[in-house]
Amino acid sequence: MNKMRMLFSKKGRAVYISHLDLMHTMQRAISRAGFSLKYSEGYNPHPQISIALPLSVGMSSICEIMDLRLNEEVSFDDFRKRLNAVLPEGIHIEDVYTSEEKSSGIKWLRVKGEYEYDSRDVSVVLPQLEDFFERDSITVQKKSKRGITDADIRPMIREIGFSCDSDGLVIMEAVISASEPTLNPELITAALRTLNPGIAPDFAAYERIEIYRPDMTVFR
């Protein structure tokens, strides 16, 4: 097959590679692995490679989807092994397969957040965090192309829960809307900061855990 989908993870130092740079990094890696990407026909040919949901800089993920087409027929297993051998630190191809399902069918996203509190007792903060998300609407300011607009992010959060880990970090886990509308998890921290700064973490790092179809089955 020459048309394929890749499931990959982006962790560690690689989380700072931007979406655009990641596309370029992948193209170069594919070329290093000895494969050649198919280019579109037309006046301004571009390589046939696309990433389903662009990931914000600083966020890690174990469920990224990339679709691509090669000029040659390859074995998926061989492709995955050779590509993994030439990727920069932190990027790893988990699976290569074929799928006809359009990536626009990703509706929900499971995210995990690590909340760091420098000078607050986590056991006090925890119930307050849970209370906060009991409300019916959470309105935050969102930067869009048209400028700053108000958005209610509560309907974009399907489920959310908090726990404490052994390092004293608060672990947030949520299922949020991945498309139409898209909720950037950073907005959850932003909401805390504006609406209840007392329980806002001093630092939050997010990770994508899983992607789902509208019916909450896992998307592949």
Binding site: Y16, R28, V57, L87, P88, E89, G90
Partner: peptide, 10 residues
């Protein structure tokens, strides 16, 4: 452009 401060390149 934080990736210029992290290393980890191929």
């Amino acid at each position: 452009k934080p990736s210029r401060y992290t290393g980890g390149e191929y």
